[in-house]
Design a protein around this nucleic acid. Structure first.
Length: 115
DNA sequence: AGTTTGACAGCAC
DNA sequence: TGTGCTGCCAAAC
């Protein structure tokens, strides 16, 4: 069965933000929190992710700060494989070239240096 | 309405 | 580097 998607307003905004992450790119919990309109709510974002699944959004593209993998519901190997499958280099629990692969979301027009 | 709970972030050691 | 502790937040109790 398809698990129900979290229905709180905050969760909806978080999942929406996560779905915007392009394949082969990643965003931190903090980034998502900011994109969801709640800067600093990184931890709360994790809470949402815990209740969601790949069916709702590409959860594997949400990583911890500093390019570390972060948790993944007890299946860190899966998260690593999914990312590698998209071309993201992962060694151990670290993402290589994190600064390059990181996706900060699109902002103000003119700031087109992050596609 | 107060407390507990984490797929977090940062900083001090 | 790695470990530990504190701050923070939305949700579930």
């Amino acid at each position: 069965v398809i698990p129900a998607a979290p229905r709180t307003p905050f969760a909806a905004r978080v999942l929406h933000a996560v779905r915007r992450i392009p394949p082969g790119r990643v965003a931190t919990y903090g980034d998502i929190a900011a994109l969801a309109g709640r800067p600093g709510a990184a931890r709360a974002v994790g809470q949402v992710m815990a209740g969601a699944s790949l069916i709702h959004a590409p959860c594997h593209r949400v990583v911890a700060a500093g390019g570390r993998l972060g948790g993944f519901g007890g299946l860190p190997a899966l998260k690593r494989d999914l990312l590698r499958r998209e071309g993201v280099a992962v060694v151990g629990d670290r993402i290589r070239q994190f600064a390059v692969v990181r996706w900060r979301g699109l902002r103000a027009a003119g700031t087109a240096r992050n596609k």
